[in-house]
Design a protein around this nucleic acid. Structure first.
Length: 651
RNA sequence: GGCGGUGUAGCUCAGUUGGUUAGAGCGAACGGCUCAUAACCGUUAGGUCAUGGGUUCAAGUCCCGUCACCGCCA
């Protein structure tokens, strides 16, 4: 038995929870449950990242305090994790006092090591990124390359961390075998970055009040990443009076103990470069692995079509249960890679794996056994089928090794291979033809017991993945509803046990009906599709400050005909549109190239803000702005339901 | 521009240290069966393994070039 510590990223409270957050947390929860299943001592942490200028500003805009804003979003996370059956041991919030203390302790340790110095720093600053940019990195208009809004020239006297000092130590760390940075392609990426030379890192801010105050530097707060990363140990009591968890899950040096940070690939650098450097400086152990997973992508094109993405993940949960979503997320993504999220894929997976696979196999076995053995599993003394047993042992072994490698898709594949084999086994033996034949009773018992046993093993292995329905399957088999690794061994099925009438655990989804209904609902509520990335627009409508009608009237919205459209060279996002506005030609640049091809728009109509000050984008003057719903950064253009004269006012 | 990755059946992906007719699941078609949730079982799907060249007795699997997409960096 070893200590197993696993963490999700801490989620920024600027953003409401979406598939990406759900996925990270589901993966960690599954890992945590799997390790408990194996008998490890597990600590599973999730949390929220609440500091920074972005939150400060968003709160000010909404007329609330930062902590009020954070509380509101955290509440949503708590509800969601509850709904999804997450078993985290703690949820750390960076606004908590225990966290502040730990961050300050971290700062003191790094300081004691002599790894801080003060320097004046001047440059283009983007508050969205909370980072400085060089001239070259900005766009021609001095806009932030990420947020595409103006960067501000700022000067600060900052505390710097001697990151460059740790270059060699980091490279040596990456080169351990197995590498602590997973998957391998990510390790290479990080290694290349570090090899290219590290610049010291500015780790204090004077423009941000909403943060951890920097010990010894009045008016400075700690850089958000130094602050945020420390959550992984602050939650364990680092810097507090009680460091028992910290000693056990972070400081222990047992070779089998693990400290795993599961992260999205976008925050790899912070976790694989900055965080280990901070820890090295502070004289603390490093994580044993930093595992980066891919993104769930939403296929925009399918979104409004008859089949595709019409429902949000939370609707899927409401309708089909958290376990179905958990299975889908783990089974349909090759771990580490990107995958596309569509509810068509979800429904297909549900029907083929849960309804037809697990549910139906359970159902046919239970019915047969109840009929043959008077409502019970086959009698005590029944022999097992050797071939099926061997097959099951092979699959269970594959499952275990795949789970250890976080290869969830392969682990699940192994279980469904066993279900497939079980169905073939039944057809080969045709027990239903032998029910009435007394002479063949032993053989029927052997076949049914072995079939039930195979399903029992599958259900036991599913406990970490489908924590609320796997026990129901086990219950349906008359087997114990809890389990550990030894439950995967052949022969655990109670013989001669009462077998409840099989309930339909996973009723097949009628795909046509489902999509017809879902589409109607989507139209009615115009539910936004699942979000993917953090998005400043993802705040709730009721959070926006109110304006009066005259303010609205200042905005001149007009319908315009699209005469021509072309991609802006060298831009991934921008389209140059030539519009006709009541006979007057206008050029408008719109950031919708990823969702619309030029030919999708030409001949149609769009709504524009007609009295917007012209602005140059990629060297083209844009005389207006196309209105579009921003769904997590992806544009859905607003277009009149029917054609109206060009220049018609919108109000 | 530099570095790295990917490109295999309609879809999602496996393909070990190069070796007989390139695989799985899903979807589709046909047949079978009837215990079961219109399920289940069997058969079929004829894919230039992105592309051009090279090494080899033999290459999806190694080498070089090209194209496309993606990631990191500049």
């Amino acid at each position: 038995m070893s200590n197993f510590y696993v963490t999700t990223p801490i989620y920024y409270v600027n953003d409401l929870p979406h598939v990406g957050h759900i996925y990270s947390t589901v993966v960690c929860d599954t890992m945590a449950r799997f390790h408990r299943f194996r008998g490890d001592d597990v600590y599973f942490l999730t949390g929220t990242d609440e500091h920074g200028q972005k939150i400060q500003r968003a709160a000010a805009q909404q007329g609330v305090t930062p902590i009020q804003l954070a509380d509101r979003v955290v509440e949503r996370y708590v509800e969601l994790w509850d709904q999804l059956g997450m078993t985290h041991d703690d949820l750390i919030r960076t606004s908590q006092e225990r966290h502040h203390r730990a961050v300050q302790e971290m700062v003191r340790r790094i300081d004691a090591k002599g790894d801080f110095y003060v320097a004046r720093h001047e440059g283009w600053y983007c508050s969205g990124c909370e980072a400085f940019y060089t001239d070259k990195e900005l766009t021609e208009e001095k806009h932030c390359p990420v947020h595409e809004r103006p960067a501000e020239w700022e000067a600060e006297e900052n505390v710097f961390f001697r990151l460059s000092k740790y270059q060699e130590a980091l490279l040596a760390w990456y080169d351990q075998d197995p590498s602590p940075v997973q998957p391998r392609s990510r390790r290479n990426e990080v290694r290349a970055f570090v090899e290219g030379g590290l610049r010291d890192l500015s780790v204090s801010r004077t423009k941000v009040d909403w943060g951890v105050s920097f010990p010894g530097h009045e008016g400075h707060t700690v850089y958000v990443w130094l602050d945020a990363l420390t959550n992984y140990i602050s939650a364990l009591g680092f810097g507090s009076d009680d460091t028992s968890l910290f000693e056990k899950f972070w400081r222990s040096e047992e070779p089998d103990d693990q400290r795993i940070h599961l992260i999205g690939k976008d925050i790899l650098r912070f976790h694989a470069v900055y965080w280990p450097a901070f820890l090295l400086s502070a004289g603390l152990p490093l994580p044993t692995s930093v595992v980066a997973h891919g993104w769930w992508l939403v296929d925009e094109k399918k979104m409004s079509k008859s089949v595709g993405n019409v429902a949000r993940p939370d609707h899927l949960v409401e309708e089909f249960g958290a376990d179905a979503l958990r299975l889908f997320l783990l089974r349909d993504m090759v771990f580490g890679q990107d995958a596309s999220f569509s509810d068509e894929a979800f429904v297909d997976r549900f029907n083929s794996d849960l309804a037809n696979g697990l549910g139906n196999t359970l159902s046919r076995l239970v019915t047969l056994s109840r009929r043959a053995f008077d409502g019970q599993t086959p009698p005590v003394g029944t022999e097992w089928d050797g071939a099926l047993r061997q097959f099951a042992e092979q699959c269970a072994g594959d499952y275990l090794s795949a789970m250890e490698e976080s290869a969830f898709h392969r682990a699940l594949e192994a279980l469904w291979r066993l279900l497939g084999e079980t169905n073939q086994f039944l057809v080969r033996n045709e027990p239903w033809k032998k029910l009435k034949n007394v002479e063949e009773r032993d053989q029927v018992a052997c076949v049914l017991a072995s079939g039930l046993e195979a399903v029992r093993i599958v259900a036991s292995a599913l406990l970490p993945v489908m924590p609320s329905t796997a026990p129901k399957v086990l219950e349906g088999l008359g087997a114990p509803t809890v389990g550990n690794e030894s439950s995967l061994a052949w022969g655990g099925l109670p013989l001669g046990a009462e077998l409840p009438e099989s309930p339909s655990l996973f009723p097949r989804i009628d795909k046509k009906k489902y999509f017809a209904a879902a589409e109607k609902q989507a139209e009615a509520s115009s539910a936004p599709p699942p979000a993917r990335k953090s998005d400043p627009d993802a705040t709730r409508a009721e959070d926006s400050p109110q304006i009066d009608i005259s303010q609205f009237a200042e905005v001149d919205l007009r319908v315009a005909d699209v005469k021509a459209a072309e991609c802006v060279p060298k831009s991934k996002k921008l389209l140059r549109l030539t519009l006709d506005l009541d006979g007057v030609e206008r050029t408008v640049v719109a950031g919708i190239q990823q969702q619309y091809a030029p030919e999708d728009l030409v001949g149609g109509q769009v709504v524009i803000v007609a009295n917007l000050k012209p602005a140059k984008l990629m060297g083209i003057e844009s005389q207006g702005m196309v209105l579009a719903a921003s769904v997590d950064g992806a544009a859905v253009a607003l277009r009149p339901e029917k054609r109206v004269p060009s220049g018609t006012r919108v109000r």
